[in-house]
């Protein structure tokens, strides 16, 4: 039997022909994408989605997602693709309205993997209460790549009452995080070939728009929010310090890191401060709003372990500094690039 002419459901891997724009492409979209993602804006399969819009400002963002392996404890590429873009909109202060989904699939990707990832995309979108309203699928020749690349773009609506941005950050402001850091990056490490280990760690990938909305509508004067993804907590703090030319002091003992993550970081020779997260935000608030911000975060399930970790100062030159458990002090910088496990 010619495999290309076989019904799709007897084919267990994506083939180049699935991207050819013909019958198989239609089957792929209908049976494997629309079946899970369907909504009234996506269903007509027009070239673009028409969204009603009220007056005011729109926030527009895009991000591409590449992760090895595609599935890992606590998530998969689909979950981070939806949560990541939702979070990028949310940290801007916007309410996410709609996402686009672009899939670049490598020939040979098992269909059941694709199905699980699309199911995860659908579930995460429901969790974030946002719809995927337009999309695109391409199939590329088999390479030594990772099988699936995802791009999501998103639009959100910026309420006129929200003013978050680096320009609002001032000395004496307080810095918070919404929970334990480093879980995502360490989880990915734990399933990577050559360094793998079994772990109770799970990725923290999650859409944070609910948490952020709770914070923004709870009467807290929120000045700045950013999700601490690649580059970790250190990366975000270095960004704030550099852009505002202000210093930030953080306290090691206050930074939430689970003992399991701390052990994993020690095993790999990594600093939890520079390890990636997919469900953590750094939030800067006015000093007298620290307690209310913390309470607002802790009321949300994704902020139960939120903590005040430090504050902004006008010390010059601008540096991020860590007061260590040992009672010492050091400068924190963003990592070089790819974090590699070390033995030394």
């Amino acid at each position: 039997m010619n495999p290309v002419k076989a019904p799709l459901d007897t084919v267990d891997r994506i083939m180049l022909a699935h991207g050819g724009g013909g019958e198989l492409t239609g089957q792929l979209i209908q049976q494997h994408l629309l079946s899970q993602l369907n909504n009234e804006r996506l269903a007509p399969l027009t070239d673009g989605a028409v969204l009603p819009w009220r007056a005011g400002e729109l926030v527009f963002t895009t991000d591409s997602y590449v992760v090895t392996p595609l599935e890992f404890p606590g998530g998969d590429i689909g979950r981070i693709a939806v949560a990541g873009t939702v979070n990028d909109l949310s940290v801007m202060g916007a309410t996410p309205v709609a996402l686009s989904l672009g899939l670049i699939i490598e020939e040979g990707l098992p269909v059941d993997v694709l199905d699980r990832i699309v199911a995860s995309i659908a579930a995460t979108a429901r969790e974030a209460n946002v719809e995927i309203v337009t999309g695109d699928t391409k199939v590329i020749e088999r390479r030594s790549g990772d099988g699936l690349f995802v791009n999501t773009a998103g639009v959100g609506c910026l309420p006129p009452t929200v003013h978050v941005g680096l320009e609002h950050v001032e000395p004496c402001d307080v810095v918070l995080v919404n929970g334990c850091i480093a879980d995502h990056g360490l989880t990915i490490m734990s399933v990577r070939h050559g360094i793998e280990f079994d772990s109770d760690l799970r990725s923290d990938a999650a859409p944070l728009n609910g948490l952020i909305e709770q914070l923004l509508t709870g009467g807290v004067r929120v000045k700045f929010i950013r999700d601490a993804t690649r580059g970790g907590l250190a990366g975000v703090l270095a960004d704030i310090s550099e852009h505002r030319q202000l210093s930030i002091e953080i306290i090691e003992a206050q930074i939430p890191v689970s003992p399991t993550a701390r052990h994993a970081a020690e095993m790999l020779g990594l600093d939890p401060l520079t390890v990636a997260n997919e469900g953590k935000i750094v939030c800067v608030v006015a000093q007298d709003h620290a307690t209310s911000a913390l309470e607002a975060m802790r009321r949300h399930p994704l902020g139960r372990k939120a903590a005040v970790i430090g504050r902004v100062t006008d010390t010059q030159p601008p540096l991020v500094e860590l007061n260590t458990r040992a009672g010492g002090r050091r400068i924190v910088q963003r990592p070089y690039g790819e974090e590699l496990p070390r033995i030394c």
Binding site: L319, R329, I331
Partner: peptide, 30 residues
């Protein structure tokens, strides 16, 4: 590597003077 003497200096000591001028760190007992 981050433990290389020069990298460590670059990372932490380039602003050694600035660091010394900072107020004393808080006390933490072991």
């Amino acid at each position: 590597s981050s433990e290389g003497t020069c990298a460590a200096w670059y990372k932490y000591n380039r602003s050694a003077k600035a660091l010394r001028d900072l107020p004393q760190s808080q006390e933490v007992s072991g």
